[in-house]
Amino acid sequence: MNATDIATGARYALTGCAAVATVENLLVLVVFACTSRLRMKYYGFLINLTLADLFYAVMAIAYTWGGPDYSDILFYIFFSGYFVGIWTILAEGINRYLAVSFVDTARYDVLVTRNRLVVVCVLIWIVALTIQIVPEFVPHSAGESLFEGVIKPTIVYLFWLITAGLYVAVFWKIKNFTQRVTNPALQPSQPDEDEFIDRARQTRRLLVTFTVILVTSFICWMPFSVMQMVTYVHRDLKYQDEVYWMTGVFYCLAPVINPWIYWIRLDSFREGCRKVLCGCFIRDSTALLESVEDPDVL
């Protein structure tokens, strides 16, 4: 198998992964839309992450087969989904940190409203698209390759480190609070603290879910950033194009895996899936039985 065959096979593999990710994340959005327990601000950033995964999957197919005339602009558009995903995971860490910082849960509800979460999600998309698309229409400079090959991947690494550190801080706050309230001498006596305990438990469960997503995304996404830095240092690297497409395939595994993480970790999501999918089959079966029993229906 020559290099051209490897690159072509990687492109088809990337397309296959992106197609699977598209179907999976569309189903996730349908479940969220049809399940009232999931349509709350508690899952706001999870919905935004699903939109980012869907956007990336669709644009990956468009970029792979869009042709050389549109390859640059399509690359910058679909790669913006990468930054939306990173910043959404970071924003969820900030949101969970605020959730466990106020013992009075009413203060958190006043500070973090549904509308404000929507505004944050919209800003994440606007900033990500802007920093990716606008440079395409600016005259290229000599330092552009340095920025794309070294500076941008380094910034990505810093975002991952900041996010990981923030998640550790939230877990630390939850652990300390749990130890305090489980101490017989410091049992909570006020309703606000009891409500905060429930919120801390919910926060921990959702944060564990995002931690799994964080680790999975890091494993799938980092090879591409490493490749960017290596190819900047070794511009004559052999099989550069083939490695590029192969890291793209590995990158696209994250949007495929994330819906399964939701299924494994979130009870409400599993219940929503069963109601949506099984409900469709039940309605179809009921309609079929009624048509058979009705003598006026041929």
Rank of each mutant, 00 (worst) to 15 (best):
Y63K: 12
V119F: 11
I77G: 11
L111Q: 11
Q132N: 15
A33V: 07
L90D: 12
L288N: 13
S291F: 11
F137R: 06
I257E: 00
I77S: 11
N95S: 04
P139I: 10
I261K: 00
I133M: 11
V103H: 08
F210N: 01
L298V: 12
T247E: 05
V212H: 02
Y70L: 08
I6L: 15
T15Y: 09
T113H: 02
Y42K: 13
A57T: 06
W245Y: 13
I131M: 09
A287V: 10
F269R: 03
T8H: 08
A62T: 08
W245A: 03
R39M: 14
D294I: 06
V138C: 10
L111G: 01
Y239Q: 08
I264G: 00
T209A: 05
V256F: 11
L27T: 06
Q228R: 11
L123D: 12
T64D: 10
V100C: 12
F137Y: 07
A62L: 12
D53I: 01
W260V: 09
V122K: 02
L14H: 08
R39C: 14
L49K: 07
I126F: 10
I219Q: 00
E195M: 04
Y251S: 13
R96K: 13
Y97A: 14
L14Q: 08
V156T: 15
V215K: 02
N48D: 08
C278F: 07
D69M: 02
F171I: 02
E271M: 03
L26G: 15
T22N: 10
Y82N: 09
T178A: 07
V276W: 01
T113I: 05
T130V: 08
A185F: 10
E195V: 01
W221Y: 10
P135Q: 12
V84I: 12
A57Q: 01
R283T: 10
V215Q: 01
A106V: 04
G143K: 14
Q190M: 07
V103W: 04
T178E: 11
L277W: 05
L166Y: 14
L129R: 01
L266T: 04
E193I: 01
G9L: 03
F210T: 02
T50E: 01
R201G: 04
G272M: 04
W65V: 00
Y76I: 08
F210P: 00
L289C: 12
Y76E: 15
L27Y: 10
A57P: 05
T130F: 15
Y63N: 12
V100D: 10
D69Q: 07
Y108D: 10
D236T: 09
I73K: 08
I257Q: 00
V127W: 13
A57N: 05
L166T: 15
A7Q: 14
L288T: 10
F102P: 06
L46G: 07
E193Y: 02
E195Q: 06
R39L: 13
L206W: 01
S141W: 13
F55E: 00
F78P: 06
V230W: 11
L253F: 15
T22Q: 03
L123A: 15
T113K: 03
C278M: 05
E293A: 13
W221G: 13
R201Y: 08
N48I: 06
N115H: 04
C273P: 05
D69V: 00
F55M: 09
S291N: 14
C278L: 12
Y262S: 02
L298C: 11
L111V: 11
T105A: 01
K173N: 07
T209N: 02
I264L: 05
V100H: 14
S71Q: 13
M40P: 00
T286Q: 12
